[in-house]
Amino acid sequence: MIDKKTMNEDSVEEYDGIAEDIFGPIYPIIVGQITDKCNITTGICLDIGCCGGHLGVAMAQATNLQVILMDRLENALKIADARIIQKGLQKRMYTLLGDVHQIPLPSNSIRLVISRGSVPFWQDRPRAFQEIYRVLAPGGAAYIGGGFGSIEQKERIAQLMKEKDPSWGKDKKYAAKERRKGLEEEMHKAGIGIYEAINNESGNWMCFRKPIIN
């Protein structure tokens, strides 16, 4: 199985296959949760650490957002480009090679930033959160974290993943608790004091907005 700390160009295809075959049903559910919370369905959306683009594609299909799929791995973007074409979304989606620590986009240009599962890859999380905040447009929102959409989906995925790797899921509850604590500390280090931590049995997310200054 792929270790998040060691995923590289060579392991992207395996990771994308798991995302497609096992995790596939969760993305529309998570998109619904994001749109309900953030209430942003038009403008530009940035999906950070997109890998094969599953979350961003689901967002484009459910809204009128223009979606940028960003990843630091070129092989991930090749898969994402193919998925965009397969879904017929070329007019509203494109890929971007970039790193969350130095996002290659102008300040105040993105209405919605999303990311599922990429945080464990970030080397400097306060810097990453600062960059996300920088590119957000006033009134824009970010929804960052990880989860399965629902308890039912979490249980289904756990069963399938344990069939692939019996050690999958061990100590995840403790790890999730520690990860939540760490993320909140890193948000404060980034200077983002106003946010909502969304924590439940199916996932853990951070949601924050850039205020509109009159």
Rank of each mutant, 00 (worst) to 15 (best):
G139P: 03
G32K: 15
D47P: 03
K172Y: 09
Q130Y: 08
T42N: 12
V31T: 08
A128D: 06
I194A: 03
I132L: 02
C207G: 00
S150N: 08
L136Q: 06
N204L: 13
I132C: 04
I18R: 02
K177D: 11
K154E: 08
G149K: 02
A76E: 07
Q90M: 12
Q90G: 04
A137W: 08
E9W: 03
V12A: 15
A19P: 03
I212T: 03
V135I: 12
K37S: 09
G193N: 05
L160R: 15
R125H: 05
E14L: 13
Y133R: 12
C38S: 04
S107Y: 10
D10P: 01
D99K: 10
V57P: 01
G139F: 04
G17A: 03
V113D: 13
L69P: 05
S202H: 14
K154F: 06
G24N: 06
P166K: 12
P120K: 12
E9A: 14
C207F: 13
S150H: 10
Y174H: 09
G191K: 00
A190R: 01
G191C: 01
K91R: 11
I2L: 10
E131Y: 06
I144D: 04
I212S: 00
G149L: 00
A190N: 04
I157K: 07
G182M: 07
K177R: 14
A76D: 15
L97R: 15
H101M: 04
N75K: 12
I22F: 13
I26S: 08
K78A: 05
H54D: 14
M161P: 06
C51Y: 07
N8H: 00
V100G: 10
A80G: 07
M59H: 07
I26E: 10
E155V: 06
N64R: 10
T41K: 11
D99F: 04
V31N: 06
R134W: 08
K164P: 01
R180I: 15
I132F: 02
R156L: 12
L73G: 03
I29L: 11
G56C: 06
Y133G: 02
D10M: 06
Q66H: 15
A141H: 00
A176C: 06
Y27H: 09
Y27E: 03
